[in-house]
């Protein structure tokens, strides 16, 4: 952030001239961000506020309209008040969801926790391991790198399909291999933990390349001289890793772990397509459970919004907490 010139202290003047000066000085910057800000305001912030509002009502696809209009025989339209119009219900949706009256919030939250922790831990751990290996001078480095990044280029829904195919109970490669060594086929998707395991494996496979590439970039920004002098001082490989590599990667790590957590938490297609919540909704995570609860059958807008607000709140609390911990350890961020 060294590139930003400091604002000169505004001399005491009226609001209008101040605005004027501000405009003269900053109009080009504003012009550059205005398209993005506008689109985001319309398509993210309005929907967000609207969503929060809807979560306090009982709107569904069926009762959303205030009036029901029917074409009469004479050609005119007759509008009558909707007898079952939606109404304000306060915290009912939240109470229903959190007490488990509708959906299985706590089961899904538990799955989400396992899913996110497993995903991010392995993404980061494997990504770091591979990045450190690829950072060394070795033969075929370019080839390894391309091969290892390849899963990133595969669209998530295709990866989901490929892994579902591999773990298919009847014709999947994994069960065929198990049979070949004399183990009976496993019905991967008919038991909660094995289904979740397959989904998590898929997600790990999918997410490692991003971490690896980001960390590889971070490694390249650590000055080589640090390692050389540490080596002259007789530091072992493990000591160099602890004392130079990890601290040097800290800024990158903090960012990618936060992003990775948010992305994994909200990762929709894998669970949605791989386990489809099987068996009996026991492997849903919050986002997919919410989607299915709200959009299967009559679309329940208020329920969808309530889940959305809950998910957003969890993530906001997490990131505030995360940043606070970082700041305590002296990270300016």
């Amino acid at each position: 952030m060294t590139t930003v010139t400091a604002d000169p202290a505004p001399s005491g003047a009226g609001l209008l001239p101040k605005l004027r000066r501000s405009w003269d000085k900053h109009w080009s910057a504003w012009a550059m961000v205005v398209p993005v800000v506008l689109v985001m305001a319309v398509l993210i912030f309005y929907p967000l506020i609207n969503g929060v509002w809807i979560s306090f009502t009982d709107q569904t696809e069926a009762n959303q309209l205030a009036e029901i209009c029917t074409k009469s025989i004479t050609g005119g339209e007759v509008c009558k008040e909707n007898p079952n119009a939606w109404s304000f219900v306060g915290f009912d949706n939240y109470v229903n969801i959190l007490t488990g009256k509708i959906g299985e919030f706590w089961l899904w939250a538990g799955n989400t926790l396992v899913w996110t922790i497993a995903g991010v831990t392995f993404h980061y751990g494997l990504g770091l391991g591979l990045a450190v290996m690829l950072h060394r001078q070795i033969r075929f480095r370019g080839l390894y790198r391309v091969l290892l990044v390849l899963p990133w280029a595969v669209p998530a829904f295709i990866s989901a399909f490929a892994w579902k195919f591999l773990f298919n109970e009847r014709l999947g490669l994994v069960n065929s291999l198990l049979n070949a060594v004399g183990i009976d086929s496993v019905a991967w998707f008919s038991e909660r933990w094995s289904a979740l395991l397959v989904a998590i494996l898929t997600n790990i496979w999918l997410g490692v390349p991003f971490m690896m590439v980001a960390l590889l970039g971070g490694l390249q920004s650590i000055p080589e001289e640090l390692y050389e002098s540490a080596e002259i001082d007789g530091a072992s490989a493990w000591q160099r890793f602890r004392a130079i590599t990890l601290p040097g990667l800290r800024p990158v790590s903090m960012t990618v772990i936060l992003l990775g957590t948010i992305w994994t938490f909200n990762m929709f297609p894998i669970i949605f397509l791989v386990t489809e919540g099987q068996p009996a909704g026991q492997t849903e995570i919050l986002v997919t459970g919410a989607f299915r609860a709200a959009f299967e059958g009559i679309r329940n807008y208020s329920l969808a919004s309530t889940y959305g607000v809950l998910i957003l709140s969890i993530l906001l609390i997490f990131s505030v907490f995360y940043r606070r911990v970082l700041r305590k350890q002296g990270e300016v961020w």
């Binding site: 930003v4 604002d7 910057a29 961000v33 929907p47 992305w263 986002v287 998910i311 993530l315």
Partner: peptide
């Protein structure tokens, strides 16, 4: 550029990553 609204915009970009599809899709 250090324009007014710069830091809030950066924060907003991070927060938008947290919005689940489920809440946005209806509006």
């Amino acid at each position: 550029f250090n324009f007014p609204g710069r830091r809030p915009l950066m924060m907003v970009f991070l927060v938008t990553q947290m919005f689940p599809v489920a809440i946005l899709i209806v509006p």
